[in-house]
Structures are given as C-alpha cells and as structure tokens.
C-alpha cells in the first residue's frame, strides 16, 4: 500500500488509526497547496502557512486516531476546515496581543494555568530515553488515545491485560527517572 501512495481517504484514515506515520506525509503533500494558498490570501506569510498546516496535521492525526472517529466528508475538506479554524485562532491571537498589556497577560496566565509539578520539556527528554516499545506504547495510549485492544493488535501483545500491565511498567519507569531527576535538582 505504501510507496505508491494511498488510494482513498479511507486508506489514509486506516493507516493513521494504526499509527503509521507515512500517512502523515501523504496528508502533508495532499493539503499543502490549498492551505498555503488560503493563509497567503488571508494576510499570512508562507511560514505561517507552514505552521498552520503543521498544527492542522497534528490535530487531524489526534482526532482520527480516536476510536470513535468517523469520516463523514472528504478528508481534504475536513483538513481544510480545521486549518481555517487554526488560522482564525492565530489571527485572533495576533490582534489580542497587540492590545493586551504584557504585565496583564503574565498575570492572567499565572492565575489561569496551574503550574505543573514537573517541567514538561524534561519529561519529554526522559520519554525519548525510553526503549522503543515503552515509548511507542505510552505515546499510542496518551497522544493518539488508542484503546488497549488496538494497542495490543498494533504492537503484537497477547491481549489488553498484557498491554495494561506493560503500560504500567513503562509509566513507572518514566516516573521514577523523572522523580529522580527532580529530587537531584532539589538537593542542588
């Protein structure tokens, strides 16, 4: 199926549901022109168009990966509608930043967003240090939102219980290394 390209929208959706990243490349190539044109025609730059496309792809990827996702329109139409929303959101943000004072913004953010216990970037580094199976399993579960059965099927585990157990092990492994890192920091 791969190598030549996907024949239909359903193929792309199925491949995304299985976590095949080549589908992402196909989506990128298929929608680059239309989204770029849209952003450029709406007072955006080429670079902003690339960013919008990137965000759209991530959003589409996450949405399609969900087990309950059903494609009712053409995939390109679906992509385009998400890209439009992404760009309008960005435009709104642009105008808001122009009128809102810096200090106000900082205060607002401090109040609204609760501080996380661990720095996300550091956690991210430790995720990348995990072995491939653990990394993939945790990503499939938390980012794509795949259920245990689908993960078992994708990764060749015996059943969903095995996945649950493996996932716990991987999570604990990650948590311990992160904890260890921050405990060291506390001593310093």
């Amino acid at each position: 199926m791969f190598g030549i390209g996907f024949t239909s929208d359903n193929d792309v959706v199925n491949e995304i549901k299985q976590g095949n990243e080549k589908a992402l490349v196909t989506l990128y190539k298929q929608n680059l022109g239309a989204i770029k044109k849209f952003v450029l025609n709406n007072s955006g730059t080429i670079d902003e168009a690339q960013d919008v496309l990137q965000e759209t792809l991530i959003a589409v990827w996450q949405n399609i990966a969900k087990p309950e996702f059903l494609l009712n329109v053409k995939l390109s139409t679906y992509m385009f509608s998400i890209a439009k929303n992404q760009w309008y959101k960005q435009l709104k943000k642009k105008t808001r930043f122009k009128v809102v004072d810096v200090s106000v913004t900082e205060n607002f953010r401090a109040d609204e967003a609760p501080m996380l216990i661990y720095d996300t970037k550091i956690v991210c580094d430790y995720v990348n240090k995990l072995d491939e199976t653990c990394k993939r399993l945790l990503m499939y579960f938390y980012f794509e939102g795949l259920d245990m059965n689908t993960i078992a099927e994708q990764m060749g585990f015996a059943n969903s219980d095995t996945v649950k157990s493996k996932k716990y092990q991987c999570f604990k492994k990650l948590e311990n290394s992160v904890k260890e890192h921050f405990e060291k920091d506390d001593f310093i």
């Binding site: 990243e21 992402l24 490349v25 990128y28 190539k29 690339q50 496309l53 990137q54 792809l57 991530i58 990827w61 609760p114 996380l116 216990i117 661990y118 720095d119 996300t120 970037k121 550091i122 956690v123 991210c124 430790y126 995720v127 990348n128 990394k135 945790l138 990503m139 938390y142 980012f143 794509e144 999570f171 990650l174 948590e175 992160v178 904890k179």
Partner: peptide, 29 residues
C-alpha cells in the same frame, strides 16, 4: 500530588510524540 505529577508526565509524553510527528512533517518542507 500524584494526579498532578501524572498529568505532568502525560504532558511530557504528548510533547515527545508531537515533536516526533513535527519532525516528520518538517522533513517534507
């Protein structure tokens, strides 16, 4: 506290996956 730490770890996992996908997209640019 446990909920908060799990939330932070999940955010880290999501970020790692996101970066992975972004690098794939960027390789096409």
């Amino acid at each position: 506290q446990e909920v908060e730490s799990q939330k932070a770890i999940i955010e880290g996992i999501k970020m790692a996956r996101r970066e992975q996908l972004i690098s794939i997209i960027k390789s096409q640019r």
